[in-house]
Amino acid sequence: MKLRSYIIALSIIVALVLQIVPMPLTVDKFRPDWVLLVLSYWALALPNRVNVGVAFFIGIVLDVLMGTSLGVHSFALCVNVFVLAANYQRLRNYSIWQQSVIIGTLSALYHLLVFWLQHLQTDVNFLFNYLWPVLPSMLMWPWVFALLRKVRRQFRIT
């Protein structure tokens, strides 16, 4: 098989590694949502290949890697990918900065869903620190978008 068959999977694996790589505690709360960013790009670019089913599976993998209850990240990723896949034709026409604001909103939704599910399970209290990754995710979107678009075009992934 050619490498191009595995590009989507490789980009998701890289995002999973970036999501769990150890960082100092002062910087860790500002870690962008790498998995959400990569899944968002592929859901916008190729909604027929990266859909809610892929988000569910990757969410389960993320739950195992992060040590959370199974289904927490999976549900949050599924909701976000569903919103993107349902509106991909409209969202593709927005400028990169408008898409960045939408990704920031979806990142906030992601973190609020994860908090809500963890609150139902363990009675965790809400801290504003849960929403710190929203801003870095918004700022990283243009670079993630440009990089993955270049990869998609270079390998002619359809």
Rank of each mutant, 00 (worst) to 15 (best):
L147M: 15
S40F: 12
M138L: 15
V124E: 08
H73M: 05
L39P: 10
V101H: 01
A43L: 06
P142R: 05
V83Y: 10
P47T: 11
S69D: 03
R149G: 13
W97N: 00
V35Y: 05
P136K: 07
L148P: 07
R152C: 03
L91C: 03
I103R: 12
Q89R: 15
Q89C: 03
R90A: 10
N51F: 14
V64E: 01
L109G: 15
W141R: 07
D33G: 05
F145S: 14
V83M: 11
G104C: 11
D28K: 05
L127W: 07
V35G: 12
T26M: 00
V61Q: 06
K29N: 01
S69R: 10
V35F: 05
W116I: 01
A85Y: 04
T26C: 00
F57P: 02
P47C: 13
F126S: 06
M66A: 13
W141S: 11
M140E: 09
F82Y: 13
P32F: 11
V54C: 10
S137F: 05
T68W: 03
S107V: 07
I102T: 14
R149F: 12
A55Q: 04
M140D: 13
L117T: 02
I60D: 00
L37R: 14
P142F: 09
Y110L: 10
W143M: 15
V38L: 10
L106D: 14
V38I: 14
Y88A: 04
R92I: 06
Y88T: 02
I60A: 02
F145M: 12
L135D: 08
